[in-house]
Amino acid sequence: MNSVSGFFAYLSACGLENLQFNYFAAVMMFFIGVYTMAASRNLIRLLIGLEISSKGCMLAFIAAGSAAGNIQLVQALLILMISVEAVVVSSGLILIIRAFRQQGNIDPTKLSGLKG
């Protein structure tokens, strides 16, 4: 009974200030993204994996900034990170569309005819 109530007490303490919990969640998200990037043969899904990894990093940033009491610096870094992410994703999607128009598929292992 004590362990059950202790578990619920731990759950209620899983707030933004609980750095360990937030880092754990960030690592979980990073794992999902890396698994997708490593295993998928769909180029769009590779980009989605990259996005999910970066979301995990953002969660770790927010938790660290909140715990350190320096959320303004984290805000500046996050805005920069989001803009870089948008550029990377849009460029990647354009490349995917070009590859699909040339090759007829979005399997990275079958893009053997790209030249230039």
Binding site: L16, E51, G65, L78, I79, I82, E85, A86, S90
Partner: peptide
């Protein structure tokens, strides 16, 4: 909720919208 409204607004408009 972490008192970072500017980053939240950019995330909402760029990632949830544009991307």
């Amino acid at each position: 909720t972490a008192q970072a409204p500017w980053a939240g607004a950019v995330e909402l408009s760029v990632c949830a919208g544009l991307i």
